[in-house]
Design a protein around this nucleic acid. Structure first.
Length: 360
DNA sequence: AACGAGCACAACCGCCTGTCG
DNA sequence: GCGACAGGCGGTTGTGCTCGT
C-alpha cells in the first residue's frame, strides 16, 4: 500500500537510478520545487512527490556534507539529543550539511549502541544499570533538600555537607550538571578531586590526598543576546504542572540555571578521545573543559532562545499583547524547558559546589 | 567460492499539521 | 467548521555491502 499521494498513479519504488537523480537535479536546479507533487511529472519521473522530496533533501541537495560524522558532530548530536530527544530535524539544524535522516541513522547505528555500552540509557541519558539501585536509594535515604521534582530521574543523591569537600564517585557529567545548576552569582567554583583520580569517570571511593581546581562557572559570565529585537521574554520557571506564569514583554532573557549532563566521559573508555583530567595536566585540561562547557551552555542557551523567540514571535505576529500571554494559553514547550533546565533532575538552590557531595 | 549474519544507510510508511477552498 | 491536499517528521523496513566461517 502506497502513500495516498502515490496511490493515484503508477510510481516506481526502491533505489534511485543515476538517470533519475540526474533528471531530478536538472529539474530542481532549473525550475526549483514550488510544489513537490508536481515535480515528478515535470521532471519526467515515475516517482511520487514525496519520494522526490526525500531524495533531494537527503541525498541530492548540493549543500550536503557527505562522509563520516566528526567527533564534534557526534558530541553535538548527543548534547542536543539530551535536550530535544528524538527530534531529528531539530537536531540536524545544528549540524550544517547533515539531514535528519542521516542524524537518525547515525544515532541508531552508532551513538545509541555506544551509550548503551557505556551504561547510559540513550533515551534519558541517565545511567542504566544503577538506575534502580539509585532510585531505591533515593526513596529510602535521599536527603536532598533542593530537588523538588517528582519526576526527577536523577540517579544522584545530593546532600548538603557543612565541611566535607570530598568527591566520591564522580563523572564529568555530574560535575558539569552541578556547575550548571549553580546560580549565576558564583563566578568561581572549587572542585576537590582525589589525588589518585586521573579520569573523571573512574570511580574512586578513597581519597588519601586531594587536588583542588578552580572552575569558572560559564553561566556567571554575562552574555548578551542577539535576538532580533529586545522584546524578549523572561521565563519564571516554577512548576510546570501548576504554572500560571506570565511572559513579560520587555525584560531580557536570562536562561540561567541550565543543567548539563554530558556523556563526554564516555569518550574516555570508548577510545574516541581520552580525556585525562588530573593533577598531571589539570590546568590545561580544565581550560578545555571550561571551553567545552561554555560551548555547550551556549548551545543550550541558543536552543532555549529559539523556543522563547518562537513564543514571542508568534504572539507579536498575531498582534497580541505579550503581557496577556500566559504559558497556559501559549504553545510553549514545557517539556523542552524541563529537559533543558533539569536534564538530570538536579535542581538546586545551593550557593556553591562546596555544598554538594555525591552519594553514589 | 559459497553462505549467512551483521551492519549502514537509503527509502518508505503512517501520522500529524498547516493551508486552502 | 469541514474535507482535501501537501509538506514535514519520526519510526520502520528494505537493500546492498562487508566480513567471518
Amino acid at each position: 500500500m502506497g502513500h495516498h499521494c502515490c496511490s493515484k498513479q503508477k510510481v516506481k519504488r526502491g533505489l534511485w537510478s543515476p538517470e533519475e537523480d540526474e533528471k531530478l537535479i536538472r529539474h530542481i536546479t532549473t525550475h526549483g520545487h514550488s510544489c513537490w507533487s508536481s515535480v515528478p511529472k515535470l521532471a519526467g519521473l515515475q516517482r511520487c512527490g514525496k519520494s522526490c522530496r526525500l531524495r533531494w533533501i537527503n541525498y541530492l541537495r548540493p549543500d550536503l556534507k557527505r562522509g563520516c560524522f566528526s567527533e564534534q558532530e557526534e558530541r553535538t548530536i548527543i548534547d542536543v539529543h539530551r535536550i530535544l530527544g528524538n527530534r531529528w530535524a531539530q537536531i540536524a539544524k545544528h549540524l550544517p550539511g547533515r539531514t535528519d535522516n542521516e542524524v537518525k541513522n547515525f544515532w541508531n547505528s552508532a551513538i545509541k549502541k555506544k551509550l548503551i555500552a557505556q551504561g547510559f540509557d540513550p533515551n534519558t541519558h541517565n545511567l542504566l544499570s544503577r538506575n534502580h539501585h539509585q532510585n531505591n536509594k533515593m526513596k529510602n535515604s535521599c536527603k536532598s533538600k533542593t530537588s523538588n521534582y517528582p519526576n526527577s530521574t536523577s540517579v544522584f543523591t545530593i546532600e548538603t555537607l557543612s565541611s566535607s569537600k570530598e568527591v566520591g564517585v564522580i563523572s564529568m557529567d555530574i560535575i558539569k550538571a552541578s556547575l550548571a545548576a549553580l546560580p549565576p552569582i558564583a563566578t568561581t567554583t572549587t572542585i576537590t578531586l582525589p589525588q589518585s583520580q586521573t579520569s573523571w569517570d573512574r570511580p574512586c571511593k578513597s581519597s588519601l590526598t586531594s587536588t583542588t581546581y578552580n572552575y569558572m562557572n560559564p553561566i556567571s559570565v554575562p552574555t548578551t543576546t542577539n535576538m532580533e529585537n529586545s522584546n524578549l521574554a523572561t521565563i519564571e520557571y516554577q512548576n510546570q504542572s501548576t504554572s500560571n506564569n506570565l511572559l513579560s514583554s520587555s525584560s531580557s532573557l536570562s536562561p540561567s540555571g541550565f543543567g548539563i549532563i554530558n556523556e563526554n566521559c564516555m569518550w574516555d573508555v570508548t577510545g574516541f578521545e581520552p580525556q585525562l583530567i588530573g593533577p598531571s595536566n589539570g590546568q590545561e585540561e580544565m581550560q578545555l573543559v571550561q571551553q567545552e562547557g561554555a560551548q555547550l551552555l551556549q548551545l543550550q542557551e541558543n536552543i532555549c532562545q529559539e523556543e522563547v523567540y518562537k513564543v514571542n514571535h508568534e504572539f507579536n505576529n498575531n498582534g497580541q499583547i505579550a503581557e496577556n500571554v500566559t504559558f497556559d494559553n501559549s504553545n510553549f514547550d514545557f517539556e523542552f524547558v524541563d529537559s533543558a533546565l533539569m536534564p538530570c533532575g538536579i535542581y538546586t538552590n545551593v550557593n556553591s559546589i562546596d555544598q554538594l557531595a555525591w552519594d553514589c
